[in-house]
Amino acid sequence: MPEQNENKSFASTSLRLKVGLAEMLKGGVIMDVMNVEQARIAEQSGAAAVMALERVPAMIRAEGGVARMAKPSLIKQIIQAVSIPVMAKARIGHFAEAQILQELGVDFIDESEVLTPADEAHHIDKHAFTTPFVCGARNLGEALRRIAEGAAMIRTKGEAGTGDVVHAVQHMRQITSEMRALTVLTEQELYAAAKNHQAPYELIRMVAQTGKLPVPNFSAGGIATPADAALMMQLGAEAIFVGSGIFMKERATPLDVENDPKEREEAVSRAKAIVIATTHYNDPKVLAEVSEQVTGTMKGLAAAGLEESQLLQTRGW
């Protein structure tokens, strides 16, 4: 490892390659998939990557229990089935799950609040891995703490598994307005800003100079329709994660894409529409056309009605 000493700097080979793959995913949609058939539908509908997991957030929310990394056999099958990048989730702080995912050859690891956290104080030291990581954030300080730990991509947390976009909007607006505010501060004021955001001074200074995060900034958590995807892109997201919005129907049950052609068609129509809306996010004519083509939508849960203890976004430190 020749670059071990410069490992944590933004000029390091390792981090440039990690951020490089995130760059390639821009303008695209990353879809949660629970089996090979869903992965194929995602690829055929134009997804830029898939996230392999055993239960989508809406099911985790409904069924409860401990949510862990997906089974290696499932991840391997999905890697075999598609040519696009495959991501998978590890629990917050669970570096052994991350080691396994890296060994399996996943292209991106999501250290995700959607799974049950494994450590209530520490996140994974992501510099220790060759595989790039994406992490969720609700505000600038949280985003920069994850970047300091080695994340190569940030996504808004939103409130996963609800189909309610309200918190993704809140988190994106929070991050972008906090970045804008930094750009007008003096050098002296940046030290206090670093303290207030609980983030490393060097990263605060980098954001103050450029007005943006040093890694791509994507959006996740409650995006369920083409209009939701366009909204997040217009608010500054560089790509979209869709979890439960494509393959779920009523009462946290997945559409039967393997046996029911009508349900399969419904999933395809949603997937295609969200992909098109993410590219043409600034073109209301296209958005109207694709919104019309969608059959069925995840019913969803209003995030405002959730108890504090049911929130996934408060996981992460």
Binding site: M24, G28, A49, S83
Partner: peptide, 8 residues
């Protein structure tokens, strides 16, 4: 980017 996505 992803050539399959662009092709769609």
């Amino acid at each position: 980017g992803e050539s399959t996505t662009i092709l769609k």
